[in-house]
Computed example of a mutant assay.
Amino acid sequence: MLLSAAAAASLLLPGVRAWGAMGHETVAYVATDFVAARTRDYFQDLLADTSADYLAAVASWADPYGHTEAGKFSSGFHYIDAQDSPPSSCGVDLARDCGEGGCITNRLLDADLESSERQMAAKVCTIALRIYLMVIHFLGDIGQPLHNENLEEGGNGIPVEYSGDETNLHHVWDSEIPESVSGGSSMLSARSWAASLTTGAYLFPFGPKRVHTIKSGIYESQAAGWVNELSLTDAQNIALGWATESNAYVCSTVFVGGVSAVEDQDLSGDYTTTAQPVVSLQMAKQGYRLAKWLDAIASAV
C-alpha cells in the first residue's frame, strides 16, 4: 500500500513508539556505522537526506503513521502475539500467533515503484504473514522481547512502577530500561549509545561506563552469527528466528519470576540492572542486522 501526499504529511503526528524513539534511533545509528558505502548512498538518495541522521530520522515514523486513517492497516504490524506460557514455556509459531492481518510485507524491492513511492516504503515497511522484511522500524521492533509476546498484550496490561511513577511493564521495556543505559531520551543519547555499542566511543559522559562493542570483544565474535544465512528470499524464516530469539528473553528475563514478581512492583532497581545487558545486546544485534539487511536490499535494486 502506497502513501498519498496527505499521508506523508502525517510524518509530523505524535504517536506511541516501541523501544521509544530513542531506542529506534539507536538501532538506526548502529546500522549507519555498518552499511556499505553503496547502501548509504542509495538510502540517502531515497530518503533525500545526506546527513548522518538519514536512518535515525525516520526510524520511528511507522508508529505515528499507524495511528492515521491511511496507516491504520499497519498498526498491528509492530508485534507478533506469541501465545506461549511464560515463564515456563516461550516460543513463536506463525500459524498460531500471526493472525489474518499478517505480520510483515515489503515494497522496497518492487522495480515498478517510483522514487517517491520507494521513499515512503522505506519509512514504513509493513508486516504480512508471508514476508518478514524488517527495514528500519520493524527490524527494531522485533528485538524488543515484549513485541513478541501475547501475555497481557505484551505486558501493556501489567501495572508496575518505575522510580515511584506508575506505568506498565511494556513501557518499561520500551523506554525506561533503554534510557537507564543511554542516559537520556534524546537523539543525542541514541547517537552516543550507538557509538558505545559500535566502538566504545562516547559523545558525552552520561552513557554506560563499560560495554561490549561490535568492533571488539564479545559482540565482535558474535556479530557474524547475528546475520547467519541472511537472505531476502528467505525473509519469513529469518524473521521467525529473530522473533523466537527475542521471545526467549520473555521467559529468561522479563518474567523470570512470573507475573507476580513484576506486577505492582518498582522495577527501577535490581530488575533494571538484570535487564540492561539484554537490552544493550538487542540494540547492537538489531542495528547490525538492519545494516546487513539494507545492504542486501541495495544490492538487489
Rank of each mutant, 00 (worst) to 15 (best):
D63G: 10
Q144L: 13
Y42H: 07
Q282R: 13
P159W: 12
A122V: 04
A284E: 02
E161R: 15
V278R: 10
G76F: 15
D33C: 04
A122E: 01
H78G: 05
A57Y: 06
A59D: 13
G207M: 05
G217Y: 08
C125R: 08
G66M: 13
S10Y: 03
A194F: 15
L129Q: 14
G102Y: 14
Q144E: 04
A7N: 01
F73T: 10
R96Q: 10
A239H: 10
P86V: 02
W242Q: 11
D97Q: 02
M187L: 04
D84C: 04
P14D: 03
G164N: 11
E176Q: 09
V135C: 13
L188D: 11
G225S: 07
T167L: 13
T39E: 02
I80H: 01
I158R: 03
A56W: 08
A82V: 06
P159K: 10
P64S: 03
A82Q: 07
H170A: 11
K209P: 00
Q83G: 05
G157N: 06
N150A: 14
I80Y: 00
D234K: 15
M187P: 00
Y54T: 00
C103S: 02
R40K: 14
A243I: 10
G184T: 06
Y162I: 03
S182A: 09
K123C: 12
A122M: 06
M120E: 11
G20A: 05
G154K: 09
C98A: 05
I158L: 06
Q44W: 03
Q282T: 06
A21V: 04
S252A: 11
A201W: 09
L294R: 13
S89F: 02
A239L: 05
P208Q: 15
M283F: 11
Q236H: 05
E179N: 14
E179D: 06
E176T: 03
C98S: 05
L230T: 00
L169Y: 01
V227A: 07
Y65R: 00
A122W: 00
I142W: 01
Y202K: 15
S51H: 05
W19S: 06
G99S: 09
K285N: 12
S116D: 09
Y54S: 01
G76W: 15
M134E: 14
A9R: 08
F138E: 08
D49Y: 11
T253A: 12
D41H: 12
G140T: 05
A121G: 07
A298E: 06
S260A: 02
E245L: 10
R118F: 00
T272Y: 01
A275D: 10
S252V: 03
A300G: 03
E263V: 06
T274N: 05
A194P: 15
V124M: 03
T50V: 01
A6P: 02
M134T: 14
F77G: 06
K285G: 15
A9P: 06
A62P: 09
K72T: 13
G155L: 14
A57E: 07
E161H: 15
A223N: 12
T272M: 01
I131P: 06
